[in-house]
Design a protein around this nucleic acid. Sequence first.
DNA 1: GCCGTTTTCGGCCCGACTGTTTTCAGTCG
Length: 591
Amino acid sequence: MLDNRSIADLLRRVAAVFEVTDTEIFRCRAYENTAAAIEGLDIPLKNLWEKNRLDEIPGLGPNLISHLDELFKTGKVKHFELELKKVPAGMFPLLQIRGIGPKLAYRISTKFALNDPDLALKQLKELIDKNQLLGLDGFAASLQEKIKKSLEQVSTQSSRLLLSQALSISEDYLIYLRRSPLVNNAMPLGSLRRKVATVGDIDLGISSSQPAKALKHALAYPQIKTVISAGESVIRVQLESGYSIDVKSVLTSDWGSLLQHYTGSKLHNIALRNLAKSKKLSLSEYGIKNSTGKTYHFSDENSFYAHLGLAYIPPELREDQGEIGTALKNQLPRLVELLDIKGDLHLHSDFQYPSSHDIGESPLKDYLIKAYEKKYQYLGFADHNPKFSELSREQRKKILEKRKNYLITQYLACENDVKISSIKLLIGLEIDIRRNGDLALEPDLIDLLDYAIISVHNSFDLTEAENTKRLLKALASHPKIKILAHPTTRILNGRQPIQADWEKIFNYCAQNQIFLEINAFPSRLDLPDDLIREAIRLKAQLIINTDSHIASQLDNLCYGVWTARRGWAEKKHLLNTLNFKDLQSVLNCNY
DNA sequence: GCCGTTTTCGGCCCGACTGTTTTCAGTCG
């Protein structure tokens, strides 16, 4: 399958061949940079290719575009295949082992004839067990031991961490770090700070008047299982839980430079350094150096960017997706913030009925209390539609009426506990889009709702054309349909997104005032950031919902806000930044 | 192989850490 990940892997394999066959190093880098750019996309590269939009990807020029063209048309690239044949096929699996790069992988796979990629890792393990790697020049026992450890890590490695999991792991470490009087600042950096949906390794930064000493404190964290490397300014450790964490430490006067440097992304930093170079400046985690060798130090990030003539670029935008050029023109968007959100329209109540999917668990009162804390103006309940095939229309109607009574009664009963007049209640429903694009509820029953959310919960196997037809048909089937929930249906580390012609769907939503959900559930984050930006480009409107099944999950909203920010979303793009009156008139529902 | 606010040719981010090295290559982010 030609998903982004496999295409990126292919380019990296070709780059690795270039590196060991003495091809120009900069051609290797071009391939590697392109691989990184493709891997960072949420939109399938193939979709961009179909729309002739490959040239929008930074670092992708005419040569690579023609190779990719061949790849999508024929399933292979002749030039790549010729290159890949120059090395033993068993070289490539070795590259996933930390500490083995192209040169070492080539030496091992050549010397020991690792020609079968499926067997290479197993053979490597046998070589280590028999101490045979020591036969290579300049290969001591310590290096073999290091590779042995990394090899074990590869075999036990699980998938990437969800952003929510990574934050919780890092928070424990940060609490420990901040406890030391040596530590002035401590923060998550890297993809964690950029709020990428999933995180590989966790990066933390600390500042101190004695950075090396502060790192010693970091090394004493009780949860550390092994120290992978430890220098004066950076350490890498593995925790008992198996996760790798890097901690970087600088003088507090360099805190801003460190934040900038280790927040990345790699491609953002490369682009930023290119800009700096054009101004005869050089950037590093220690500041900005001018041509005379003088280094300017930055204790905060604002002044670091300002020194380059740039507006402050929020971490979520630092992906080399045009943010630097936009900052130069001082035209960065004013990204949406948590406090802009005034309500949540995708909640599941604890009303008991034969539901098509899972029902909520918290009483309405708990949701209201939580919403009150958040200063929300409204909550919308959108339980799943009653079972479609097993119930009659009459039964469904009764259930919906009963549910409405249940919610209203509960709501009114809360008057003594919450100042409910400050939080309005809306009664919606989340309705399944069936395989053929029909909805799992009769139109006259949809009429009874304040608003309808529609979403896909089955038949994930359809083709792109079938999905597009299915979604467009569903969107057009009733005027009460206001929200398309978790549009791609992806589950991070679980289920691939469905393919659809999103441009068509976003255009339809834009023209018909249907809002695309940014589902804030940490394992969904759907729409993904790339598609959010695409939706905004096509003038489609959005809404951030938590899809809560228990009241505490209202706190997941931050994940949706971060994802929206990564998609360059502003307050004006989001339905639930409106106050209740305006929301009501958009939804066209009377309270 | 890519790219342009000095350039369409001649550059290409920058530094940390490790290992096996007396000065550097490989790997990583």
